[in-house]
Amino acid sequence: MKTIAKLFKAGLNDLLNLFYPNPCLLCRNTLQTHEEFVCTACRLELPETGQHRGEALITNQLKFAGKVPVAFVYSYLYFTKKGKTQRLIHALKYQEKKEIGCVLGRWYGYQLKTDCQLNEQLDLMVGVPLHPARLRQRGYNQSDWFARGLSEALEIPWSDRALSRTKFTLSQTGKDRMGRWENVSDVFVVKEPDLVANKRILLVDDVLTTGATLEAFTVALRAAGCQSVGIVTLAATR
């Protein structure tokens, strides 16, 4: 019966795609049945950093050197203005395509598990929280959706209850590093210290620029007694 149901579902999807084609977010060509949001051709052209394999690894690490101790800093894609990554993140944050975050998280999570066994180095992952007002405005936290995909692939628990923002902050866009730090240095609180105490924590965010937000986040977690903090983001500026 399950096989018949799967065949029926596949046939129904093919019929729907015939009349209402589902386009790739990047090239707008119609997606095939097995493709999600991004066609295979565009996926192969995504600007992956390869940082978890040691490629250009030092760039991300230097953003935190001498400031806070971090076990590792990996980003899936390079971010450039008007590039493929920016278009995906824009869809994730502003076009209500939250599921793309989960898909990208699964793709990167499988790489992290296969290439460097990151699943063996972690106990819990948490996403950078939005202020409740911004969360109500957007309807979801894009970092949490990326974290969900990572959690599924790495088979590591994920929680959105560990941290919160205590103040509404202005957009980080256009600020230098000092401005970004001043904007977030006292806005994070560990709501449930027992969740993170003595655990190896993975911080998850959408874009790494100067690292000020994640630095402040790391300070709060370390103060709450976690064993270590590693960082994974969907994208990073070069």
Rank of each mutant, 00 (worst) to 15 (best):
L44Y: 09
Y74N: 09
F19K: 04
L62I: 05
Q137P: 01
K67T: 10
A10D: 10
R165S: 03
I89Y: 00
W181L: 13
G109E: 08
K167V: 12
I58L: 09
P132E: 00
S143T: 13
D144T: 04
Q95M: 11
P193H: 04
Y94M: 03
F8W: 11
L208S: 04
A5K: 08
E35Q: 12
T85Q: 03
T169N: 05
C42N: 01
D160N: 15
L46M: 12
A5T: 13
K175P: 05
T3N: 14
E192C: 14
G174H: 06
H131P: 00
Q111I: 05
V126R: 04
F72D: 04
R222N: 15
T59F: 08
L130P: 00
S164C: 07
E120N: 14
T40G: 07
L7D: 07
Q51Y: 06
R53L: 07
G50D: 02
L135T: 01
A153K: 01
L88E: 03
C27Y: 09
Q137W: 04
Q172P: 02
Q121I: 14
T169E: 01
F72E: 09
T169R: 00
L26G: 08
R165P: 00
Q32R: 14
A162C: 12
L135H: 01
G149D: 13
E215A: 11
R200L: 01
F168G: 03
D123H: 15
L124F: 06
G149S: 07
C24Y: 03
A65H: 11
A91K: 01
L163E: 07
H131C: 00
G66N: 01
V204K: 05
Q137D: 07
V126A: 12
